[in-house]
Design a protein around this nucleic acid. Structure first.
Lengths: 337, 337
DNA sequence: CTGAAAGCGCTTACAG
DNA sequence: CTGAAAGCGCTTACAG
């Protein structure tokens, strides 16, 4: 059972009203609907309030208006810097509109998303943003009262009325692939290892399509998750007779795990094998070697997610935004030899 | 201006009361003080409530009781996996007592901490946990009404009445140093590069003391922050005539940056230079090479922080807990040759 | 433009 | 053990 704290009381709206010689409804208006009150009065009230160190209770406001400024960003794992960067960007984007982002971390627990959604609904969150762990069942989401007031950072079954932002997976993988082909690689592998989102399968399928297009032999590693998947893939590569000369990893963490385990096995990147990641994490600029990666426009995703949510609130209009990735060429890729 | 959402209304306490044939105060008691109501009544009320999909409004509860379950964890940078791991651990620890952790990210902005504290005070947070960016001025903190109901993840001027948890910096650096000495190193450098917390200076001073103790020559790099500091240090090392054979980094991110830039300059770890980090991030197990590091007991820190806060609420008793680090030997250190 | 009143969804002394 | 009432700190039709 949570213990309670003894809060230090800041002045109440009534005390401010008394001190300013007005009714509390006027104090309320001075703050919340400034032009519903005469300028003189307003300035006087605000001056008195600030002198007393008064500020409105967001709790009481939310209860009364049935709407708060709290917006949940639900992510699976805050230990992956991708979500850290996303949360940072989105916090700024939210702040710009007076919202306060609340970061909710689910782990790989399916129930947690539902729990958070419900809790935030009870806090009158105006909308919610979800970066899903796996494939979301849109029908499930509808239970929590947010209706269309949801933005998903992933593709989603298009029949469903929920806005989404995502990066063009196909384009991203193509960027990586073409870069590698340009470097002379003809044996390019793919390491999956991100959870069951649409994005995950889109990247995998993009790889397969490209392999077909170039009439190459597919080499796909699909065991494990995150950095562990990279490690697994490395073990298999080290063991195989015909090693690929280049590998595309489903995300940067997978690439880190791959390079680490390859290095432990005496295989050097990029001299022996080239590696491309996906995310463009800042950390990749400081990894060994600095990681060539498909850059997701993370800050833009944050801004657009907030924007999409606002559009739904304003007009009910939903949209599916697909952003263009770019290729960040650093040092983990090189020519074949 | 934040737009408002149209919430789907869940049943109110009065509707539940009516459906159960009792007064709403009985419904309230059935949930919040179960043994203040006859078992039969309670079970009936709860059954009706659950059938109607009713759950109490945390907002209304907080407003009425002046105490919520929201506890802020204020961190400087969620992009560093250390804080991700800390937040994950602390979320679990908080949950165990019915608290809900809300992650607040300040960046290197001094004002942000104050703002968050104030906002969370207005939400009736029972206490707050701060992992400071720089050296906290305890006097500043007192302004936000939390009084002693604060836990700081760092040392603090001991005269001040605020509980703290931290890891024994001296012991941690000694572990790293002794490990290196045991490997035959006699020229050991230190890269600072974490912000101005007490922890940061403690680690630096521990290094200096050890250098004296072993009658070695100190080599200290103090420019830049985070991974960038590591990069800077590497540049200077590459340029210097008498390179150290081993380096202790103030944290894992610094170590990553160092190893990356050393590698770019053709210096290999651990063959040419050994590197020890500080944090013991999981990511270090997947870096290239896997990073030897002083392991902070992050999960324990999370648990203890919550515990300290509860003790303050219960009895007003404050405490300063210092945890023991351990050494995680991976592959970034090796014998001199 | 401003005030008085009702009410958001709860909790908790106080009666009975 | 349960009910009726007051009140947490606001907002907002409704009068004036």
């Amino acid at each position: 059972m949570p213990l309670e704290g003894k809060p230090v009381s800041s002045p109440s709206i009534d005390e401010v009203a008394a001190a300013a010689g007005v009714h509390k409804s006027t104090v309320s208006r001075a703050f919340s609907r400034p032009d519903a009150v005469k300028r003189q009065t307003r300035e006087h009230v605000l001056a008195v309030a600030s002198k007393m160190g008064y500020s409105m209770s967001p709790l009481a406001q939310a209860l009364r208006t049935k709407s708060s400024t709290l917006v949940p960003l639900i992510v699976p794992d805050i230990t992956n810097p991708f979500f850290g960067e996303l949360a940072t960007a989105m916090t700024a984007a939210a702040e710009a509109f007076g919202y306060h982002l609340v970061l909710c971390v689910t782990g790989d627990d399916g129930r947690a998303t539902a729990d958070y959604l419900q809790a935030m609904q009870a806090m009158y969150a105006p909308f919610a943003i979800i970066a899903p762990f796996g494939r979301l069942d849109p029908a499930d989401l509808q239970q929590f009262g947010f209706g269309k007031r949801l933005v998903v950072i992933d593709r989603i079954e298009s029949a469903h009325e929920i806005s989404t932002v995502t990066v063009d997976s196909n384009r991203g993988i193509r960027l990586a692939f073409d870069h590698l082909v340009g470097l002379g690689h003809t044996s390019i592998a793919y390491v999956s290892g991100i959870a069951g989102t649409h994005t995950a399968s889109d990247r995998r399928e993009a790889y397969s399509a490209l392999i077909d297009e170039h009439a190459m032999t597919p080499v796909m590693f699909e065991r494990g998750m995150g950095a562990g998947a990279g490690e697994r893939a490395a073990e298999e590569i080290l063991r195989s007779a015909a090693r690929p000369t280049a590998v595309i990893a489903a995300n940067d963490l997978v690439a880190f795990g791959l390079i680490s385990a390859l290095g432990a096995g005496g295989v050097r990147v990029p001299q022996d094998i080239s590696v491309v990641g996906f995310d463009g994490l800042e950390l990749g600029a400081r990894s060994n070697p600095p990681l060539t990666s498909v850059q997701q426009p993370i800050a833009e995703m944050g801004r657009i997610a907030i924007d999409l949510a606002r559009r739904v609130l304003e007009s009910g209009e939903i949209d599916h935004v697909v952003l263009e990735p770019s290729l960040l060429i650093r040092s983990s890729t090189g020519p074949t030899r």
